[in-house]
Computed example of a mutant assay.
Amino acid sequence: MKFTETAWEIFSQSIEDYHLTDNVEATIKNPFPDGSLEQLLYAKNWIDTVQWHMEDIIRDEDIDPTEALTLKRKIDSSNQKRTDLVEFIDSWFLDKYKNISPREDAKINSETPAWAVDRLSILALKIYHMNLEAQRETASEDHRKKCTDKLNVLLEQQKDLSEAIEQLLFDIENGKTKMKVYKQMKMYNDQSLNPILYQNVKNE
């Protein structure tokens, strides 16, 4: 089975498992062995799925402002965990390909394997929820038709993105593309880099 087929199955399982409770406070029950790529992929999509629903909740116009602020903090934390996990998955790929010697004319891809997988994980969520809307009985026929059209585009995107990821991995394995990773170095969560945060520390 191709890597992207395995990843898609794991993402789909994670999404289905989340919707057994449909609760952003639900505890993850990762079924895969610790340290395995499967375990990392499941954890990655679980974070994405929980955050997807937190983003829905915070857009409720009647949400209590205090609750919204608390939720915003959780979304920020989730974003950081998502970034950390993507970089961890890239480290997995780096280790896998550490003995590959790139050719002299090897190119550098604008996106690492893990960040491409990140897009695939989000796409799995888009397809899942667009499919629900395309079949929602309480919606109008026009709504379902529009969502079906969008779903078909997303499915085509899944095919194309999966093909692109497979090609990228093939090129890395064959030395045609360099496996190179840059850390995101996000600044807004860093107390030493965000002016608002480090000014608050000085004022204490």
Score class of each variant (00 low, 15 high):
4 T>N: 04
10 I>A: 03
11 F>L: 01
12 S>L: 01
12 S>M: 02
12 S>I: 01
16 E>C: 08
18 Y>A: 01
18 Y>S: 03
18 Y>M: 02
21 T>M: 07
21 T>L: 13
22 D>T: 11
23 N>R: 10
25 E>D: 15
26 A>L: 12
26 A>E: 10
27 T>V: 15
28 I>F: 05
30 N>A: 02
33 P>Q: 01
35 G>A: 06
38 E>R: 04
39 Q>M: 11
41 L>M: 04
42 Y>T: 00
44 K>Y: 11
47 I>R: 15
48 D>T: 10
48 D>M: 14
48 D>L: 15
51 Q>N: 14
53 H>W: 10
53 H>N: 15
54 M>F: 08
56 D>Y: 08
61 E>Q: 13
62 D>Y: 13
65 P>W: 03
67 E>K: 13
69 L>E: 13
70 T>H: 11
73 R>I: 15
75 I>W: 10
76 D>N: 12
84 D>T: 09
84 D>C: 09
85 L>V: 09
85 L>C: 04
90 D>Y: 00
91 S>D: 12
91 S>C: 10
91 S>M: 05
92 W>F: 09
94 L>R: 05
95 D>L: 08
97 Y>C: 01
99 N>H: 14
100 I>Y: 04
100 I>E: 07
100 I>K: 04
101 S>Y: 09
104 E>W: 05
105 D>M: 09
110 S>C: 10
115 W>Q: 05
117 V>D: 00
119 R>P: 02
122 I>F: 08
128 Y>G: 06
132 L>F: 08
133 E>C: 09
136 R>N: 13
137 E>Y: 11
137 E>M: 08
138 T>Y: 09
138 T>E: 15
141 E>Y: 07
142 D>Q: 15
142 D>S: 13
144 R>F: 04
145 K>W: 06
149 D>V: 04
149 D>L: 10
151 L>S: 01
151 L>E: 00
151 L>K: 00
152 N>D: 00
152 N>M: 00
154 L>E: 01
157 Q>A: 07
159 K>D: 09
160 D>K: 01
162 S>N: 02
169 L>D: 07
170 F>W: 10
171 D>E: 07
171 D>I: 03
173 E>Q: 10
176 K>D: 05
177 T>S: 02
184 Q>I: 14
186 K>M: 13
187 M>V: 14
187 M>A: 12
188 Y>R: 11
188 Y>A: 12
190 D>G: 15
191 Q>Y: 14
193 L>S: 15
193 L>W: 13
196 I>S: 13
197 L>K: 08
198 Y>C: 01
198 Y>G: 03
198 Y>R: 01
199 Q>E: 14
200 N>G: 09
200 N>R: 10
203 N>C: 02
204 E>I: 06
